[in-house]
């Protein structure tokens, strides 16, 4: 069953088109990897899917939004003010907010969930530390733990491994795959074409013309052949 459908979608900012006429759908349990050059509109597409940006044309349909138990999101850049006082725990648990509804406090399960996700990301020992005093990679893990708290059925990741060391990168991909096997739909932006091809079930290649299809179709297509032989594409 299609969990996410984009119909004739045109994305862009303030009436300025970035990409026109996108058509694709993502089924529940899919692992979609979005690839493409810098500035091809990957982040813009993700923001449009999340309704942070209005589509210029066409529509984004997310099935059973209420029953899907929330969408987790890892932004490419989080502009946090330099002097924001927030502990790691406070940030991670804020991912559980969509589970609360109007309840003004976090339940024991939600606290447990955020502890588990910090454990998964290996940041339990940092839980009382101030977010802005962490290293870039540590901050990335905090935001990932928060995204995991919010993810019910779908997880959108914008370059999740940027800033992580090689070991953490490998662990991250393993973790994402495990989540996918548990039934969470993954939509991930990556410049690492090798990984994309390794783990993903579907590929969306942004560009003009764009490509959407399964991994195997992508590898057979001319666009995929050209891109994947460029030694991992443009790894930013």
């Amino acid at each position: 069953m299609a969990q996410l459908t984009c119909n004739n979608l045109t994305i862009g900012y303030d009436g300025k088109t970035v990409l026109k006429g996108l058509n694709f759908s993502v089924n529940s349990g899919d692992y979609l990897c979005i690839v493409g050059e810098n500035g091809s509109g990957k982040s813009t597409l993700m923001k449009t899917i999340l309704h942070l940006l209005a589509p210029l044309e066409g529509s984004v349909i997310i099935e059973n939004k209420q029953h899907s138990g929330g969408i987790g999101y890892l932004p490419q850049q989080t502009v946090v003010q330099k002097d924001f006082p927030a502990s790691v725990l406070e940030i991670v648990i804020s991912g559980c907010l969509n589970r609360c509804g109007l309840r003004p406090y976090y339940s024991r399960e939600e606290k447990q969930l955020s502890r588990e996700n910090m454990e998964k990301m290996g940041i339990s020992h940092l839980s009382k530390r101030c977010y802005r005093e962490l290293s870039g990679g540590q901050q990335q893990r905090v935001l990932l733990a928060r995204a995991l708290c919010a993810a019910g059925k779908m997880l959108l990741l914008d370059e999740p491994v940027s800033g992580l060391d090689p070991k953490a990168t490998a662990e991250m991909y393993e973790l994402i795959q495990k989540l996918n096997e548990e039934g969470i739909t993954i939509i991930m932006i990556s410049h690492d074409i090798g990984t994309a091809v390794n783990y993903a079930s579907h590929i969306l290649h942004m560009g003009n013309p764009y490509f959407f299809g399964t991994k195997d179709e992508y590898l057979d297509s001319s666009i995929g052949k050209a891109f994947s032989t460029q030694d991992g594409g443009s790894k930013a």
């Binding site: 309704h51 939004k65 989080t78 946090v80 907010l97 969509n98």
Partner: peptide
């Protein structure tokens, strides 16, 4: 206050 985009994206 911390991250308006994330809050919006996750349904707040």
């Amino acid at each position: 206050t911390f991250d308006e985009d994330f809050a919006k994206a996750t349904g707040t």
